[in-house]
């Protein structure tokens, strides 16, 4: 992973188009029970970017994220990973086989709001599980890498513990390590700190900041405005299933263009974020 100086990628709009598009969402729409949750939304995520998706509850942020690795199947539109369509066979409208879908998903990491660690496995086993049993990699090799990863996220002394004994912040750091172990092209974060006690949020955000600094491509749905302002390379503001405003964090937080964004920020500013 390249080292990029500073806490944020100094990316200009010109450079965007030259970088590889890792993940692309095009014209996505989705309804649940007659409610339109995503309305024709499009987004490109470039390599090394940290895209923060912000918006009020019910704006469809999580659904958008979950469509990216096809945990939710959109009603219309496309999702492409490095140019390959996810969920649908190339050229047609036939749904992909579960096996092909699983293979594509190994290239997309996911960190869940409620951690989703496997309770019957120790921390080390949790992180090793997918590389060994899905990617079929050599166990000894994986073990070495995993142990280094766990030390890196600050859990070197908890490798043989079961998730039940960990704090929320520790569990989430395991969740991040678990994604990293797969060496994905992009990691999706679904409100990674929303379920944490306030004093544990910082340790997780610190790890995520480190990842961004190391050049990991990340899409983060979050309510942590401070993180978005300091670490994101691009903000996508969603409301009511549409992407209402996008831009650099400096611009979004200092001078939002749309009314909706302004209202949203006012609400959060008054909460002292």
């Amino acid at each position: 992973m390249q080292e990029i100086a500073g806490t944020r990628h100094p990316v200009s709009t010109a450079e965007h188009d030259e970088r590889d598009v890792v993940l692309e969402v095009s014209g996505l729409s989705k309804s649940f029970d007659g409610n339109m949750v995503l309305r024709d939304i499009s987004l490109k995520v470039h390599k090394g970017e940290t895209v923060c998706v912000l918006g009020p509850s019910g704006s469809g942020k999580s659904t958008l994220l979950r469509c990216m690795n096809w945990l939710e199947e959109p009603d219309g539109g496309m999702v492409l990973l490095a140019g390959q369509r996810i969920g649908v066979r190339p050229g047609g409208n036939i749904r992909m086989t579960d096996r092909d879908l699983a293979a594509m998903r190994t290239r997309i990491g996911m960190v869940f709001q409620h951690f989703a660690l496997w309770p019957h496995l120790t921390v080390r086993q949790n992180v090793m599980e997918a590389p060994v049993h899905v990617l079929k990699r050599n166990k000894a090799e994986v073990r070495q890498e995993v142990e280094a990863l766990l030390v890196r996220v600050g859990l070197g002394d908890k490798m043989d513990s079961f998730p039940a004994r960990l704090s929320g912040g520790q569990k989430q750091r395991v969740g991040i390590a678990r994604s990293l172990a797969m060496k994905p092209d992009v990691i999706l974060f679904d409100e990674p700190t929303s379920a944490l006690d306030p004093e544990l949020v910082g340790e997780v955000l610190a790890v995520m900041q480190g990842l961004a600094r190391d050049g990991m491509t990340m899409v983060v749905v979050t309510h942590e405005m401070g993180f978005a302002r300091d670490v994101a390379s691009r903000i996508v503001f969603m409301d009511n299933g549409k992407s209402v405003e996008t831009g650099s964090p400096e611009k979004f937080f200092a001078a939002p263009e749309t009314d909706r964004a302004r209202q949203f920020l006012m609400r959060y500013a008054s909460r002292g974020h």
């Binding site: 997309i108 997918a130 797969m182």
Partner: peptide, 14 residues
């Protein structure tokens, strides 16, 4: 918990 199995899917288990 639903997420447990979802994580399985997300990591490529099938």
């Amino acid at each position: 918990p639903k997420e447990l199995i979802e994580a399985g899917h997300a990591f490529g288990f099938v």
